[in-house]
Nucleic acid binder design. Structure first.
Length: 454
DNA sequence: TACATACAC
DNA sequence: AATGGTGTATGTA
């Protein structure tokens, strides 16, 4: 092994700056990851953002070390106890396996970028990103070849790809096209579950029976129909549950599909070598933690470490990890979920000017109140989120006696929360309201007030 | 209930 | 010069 490959190398500092940008993503196969990582590091190094990322990394490292200590402290008796717990739980989870439904996950290809190209065909074939110098929402496939991707700041993207074209976000446009795709989804599952503007889950079990078609045939037909209605391509995954369908839709992206049959053996074979990071819900931190504390990289290894997982994690986390190892996921009909919170936040250049901060807060309170009135909501828990100039995030909350929704009430309470933090230099303020479960009774009164005011 | 973290898009 | 906005879930105290 070359000496530079060893850990603790000081010659290549960029290797220790872990961003999310080098994570495998569709369209990024041929990318020179080393180069991308070096440029991201060079552009970030020394910034407040970078320093905060380093603090976060150190915190995670600490957490991993704590976990390693806990593992080391397990006695043989503990280990055999937790293995029994795990084996029992695996059987219980296995008993919930449902192979009777066929789920399809649709994912529009580079959605925002594709919509922008549709409305400006001269962008076709050129590297392009939707977003700004501070943040990119979506990059088209030409840009991805340079390592440019969503969630990357634009100024770094431009360094990676100097000819990159920037297009500002235009949600109205994306919502319009999203609605067109949803009309198509409706034909295959009237109760389809929209996951975002560009993603949806469909239970196509009935569609398969009605049309006497396989899941793969339905997926082909649906993608063709989406293309005809919108001029946009999408990818699809078909599998026995939502978790697996989602993984599958990523496999032949863009403009492709992958079918995982409703067969236990096929599922287990599919899941066995699958990197855990491919699973929705397992992000950068969990991947890191499971790898460094347990040596887990693939879903199969979740089962091999089942005893340790049950020993070290809460019931719900352990259940999730074991389910992943078994290739289980939800197959039930999507329940109608009411939203639990509503928020507004804005980033600005960091300042400790109190008048400015209060003005920002007033603007947010006003925007939040407008949104709440639009939705007919009122709440009694108000949360103020602050991001300091050094990127530290704090939240401060109060739960009130009565439900509120007016900008005056929001501002009155939010100001108190802000005041307690002064003096402070901030780059972001957010105001959020939640917890209106018992509040539906008040809807009529709100409507009345709303009508009275206008 | 309050707060911090992790995650998704 | 410069690293988003909105919402959910969960662990812990």
């Amino acid at each position: 092994m070359a000496k530079s490959e060893s850990s603790g190398d000081t010659g290549r500092p960029w290797q220790s700056y872990h961003t999310v940008y080098t994570n495998a993503k569709a369209g990024m196969e041929g990318v020179d990851k080393e180069k991308v990582q070096r440029i991201v590091y060079e552009m970030s190094k020394g910034s407040k953002y970078f320093e905060n990322e380093e603090r976060k990394e150190a915190y995670i490292k600490q957490k991993i070390e704590n976990m390693q200590d806990q593992i080391a402290k397990l006695t043989d008796a503990d280990i055999s106890h937790y293995q029994k717990v795990a084996d029992k739980r695996i059987l219980e989870l296995e008993a919930t396996r449902d192979l009777t439904r066929i789920w399809l996950h649709v994912d529009m290809d580079a959605f925002y970028a594709a919509v922008e190209t549709l409305s400006n065909p001269s962008l076709n074939g050129k590297p392009m990103a939707v977003g700004s110098m501070s943040m990119i929402s979506t990059a088209n496939y030409e840009a991805r070849r340079f390592g440019v991707r969503a969630a990357m700041p634009g100024f770094i993207a431009r360094k990676l790809c100097p000819e990159l074209i920037f297009v500002p976000v235009d949600f109205k446009k994306y919502t319009h096209y999203s609605d067109l795709t949803r009309k198509v989804f409706q034909n295959y599952d009237p109760n389809f579950m929209a996951a975002s503007l560009d993603e949806a889950y469909l239970d196509i079990t009935n569609a398969c029976y009605e049309r006497d078609a396989t899941g793969g045939e339905i997926a082909e037909e649906l993608r063709k129909s989406v293309y005809e209605e919108t001029g946009l391509t999408c990818s699809a995954g078909v599998g026995p549950n939502r978790l697996l369908a989602k993984v599958c839709s990523d496999i032949n992206k863009p403009n492709g599909q992958f079918v995982l049959p409703n067969d236990r053996m096929a599922v287990m074979a599919f899941i066995s070598s699958l990197p855990i990071r491919k699973i929705g819900g397992i992000g950068k931190v969990t991947e890191h933690l499971l790898r460094d504390a347990f040596g887990i990289a693939t879903c199969e290894e979740m089962l091999q470490n089942s005893g340790f997982l049950c020993a070290l994690f809460s019931r719900s986390s352990a259940d999730f990890f074991l389910s992943v190892g078994l290739g289980l996921g939800r197959t039930d009909a999507p329940e109608v979920k009411l939203r639990k919170s509503i928020s507004n936040e804005r980033t600005f250049s960091a300042t400790d000017d109190e008048a400015f901060l209060y003005q920002k807060l007033a603007d947010l309170a006003e925007m939040l109140s407008v949104d709440m009135k639009k939705e007919g909501l009122c709440g009694r828990t108000l949360t103020l989120k602050l991001k300091t100039a050094s990127f530290e995030v704090r939240t401060r909350a109060v739960t009130l006696q009565k439900y509120i929704f007016s900008s005056e009430d929001i501002l009155k309470h939010a100001s108190k929360l802000l005041k307690a933090e002064l003096p402070i230099s901030l780059r972001l303020i957010a105001a959020s309201m939640g917890y209106w479960s018992v509040c539906s009774l008040l809807t009529d009164q709100i409507t009345e007030l709303w009508n009275f005011k206008f």
